[in-house]
Amino acid sequence: MNINSFKKRIKKDIKKLLYHNFNWYKGKFLGIHLQGGLCNKLHCLFSACDIAINEKSRIIEPYFGWEKPILFSEIYDLDYFNSKMSEFNNGKNLIISRDKLNTKSAKLNSIENVVDLWKYSERELFKQRNTFSININSTKLRVLNALKLRPEYQSIVDSYTNDKSFTAIQIRTESDWVRHAGTNKVNGNEKILVSLDEILKMVADFEIVGDLFFTSGQNHSKISENIKKLDIQPHHFYQPNYEYEINAAINFEICCRSHYFIGLSRSSYSNLISLKRAGLLNNDNSFIYNYRDKILKRQDMGIQYVAELSVNNKTVIK
């Protein structure tokens, strides 16, 4: 480690110490960095909101985006979010838009977060996985409930879902997932990567309700052609002109509103969809296809990532 890296590490460790011992964030505008894909970023956002509410601070509007940076408000309705979350934040807006941070006072009161938001989220998930329960007042559920797409994107969701019964599936065969599966192994009857042929073989044996909506980041034409061979009508949404995570957020909400949702336990995307369905939309009909070569019903509300646990460990809200 060179001297500059060493100095940066020491500085960061000192900041962490200050935060944990002296309420360093209290009354501040908190700058946060979200990592990973859409749902990994949402897990980081859950953590940031929990910290901000506990420390009586507020969050500077964060960036999302996979291919290029876009603001939270370019995907979600920021006013709606703040309206819902203000109930738990002493009536104050929880996220401050960046165009309101130009005053000298705001700049003086801005501070960068030093807490690892992903690890913070994992610690919360660890408790939930081990107690098989989620607190009804958890920040995670509150934030999920406050996330509403911008009106132009919500209208797309409505066009796919209003007055329709359909089944939705996440087909996780994109190139980044293939690379991920190549460097991560699981034991027993679980798989991380399930081929399209294997998925559709299981779908053929599953009782599909209505048409089949699929979400995937790549190869939409190929997937559609193969689903049609099963005499099932496929649908999907992907607008190339939209940033990747805008597409992901629209697909997320469509999947949440399906009669049945089929995904895999190793995907944070599938897991958050399953959680929102069970925890907020009163629909616990979510399934996985990455265990025992079958489509099996989840019992975990999307909390467990180990496939065997997701279909065997009943999770409740209390």
Rank of each mutant, 00 (worst) to 15 (best):
R179P: 03
T183S: 14
G188K: 03
G188F: 09
K191I: 05
I192C: 09
I192P: 11
V194N: 02
I199Y: 07
A204P: 03
A204T: 13
D205E: 15
F206E: 13
E207D: 15
I208F: 05
I208Y: 08
V209P: 05
G210E: 10
G210T: 08
L212A: 12
F214M: 11
T215W: 07
T215S: 15
S216G: 06
G217F: 01
H220Y: 11
K222A: 03
I223R: 01
E225V: 04
N226P: 02
I227E: 07
K228P: 05
K229R: 15
L230Y: 14
D231V: 03
I232S: 00
Q233L: 11
P234M: 09
H235K: 14
H235T: 07
Q239R: 08
P240N: 07
Y242E: 04
E243T: 03
E245C: 06
E245N: 09
I246M: 00
N247S: 01
A249S: 15
A249R: 07
I250P: 04
N251L: 04
N251P: 07
I254Y: 00
R257A: 08
S258I: 09
H259W: 03
Y260I: 08
I262L: 01
G263R: 06
R266L: 06
R266V: 08
S267I: 06
S267F: 06
S267K: 04
S268Y: 04
S268A: 13
N271M: 14
I273A: 00
K276N: 01
K276M: 00
R277D: 02
A278L: 02
G279N: 09
L280V: 05
N282T: 10
N285T: 12
N285S: 14
F287G: 10
I288C: 04
Y291R: 03
R292P: 04
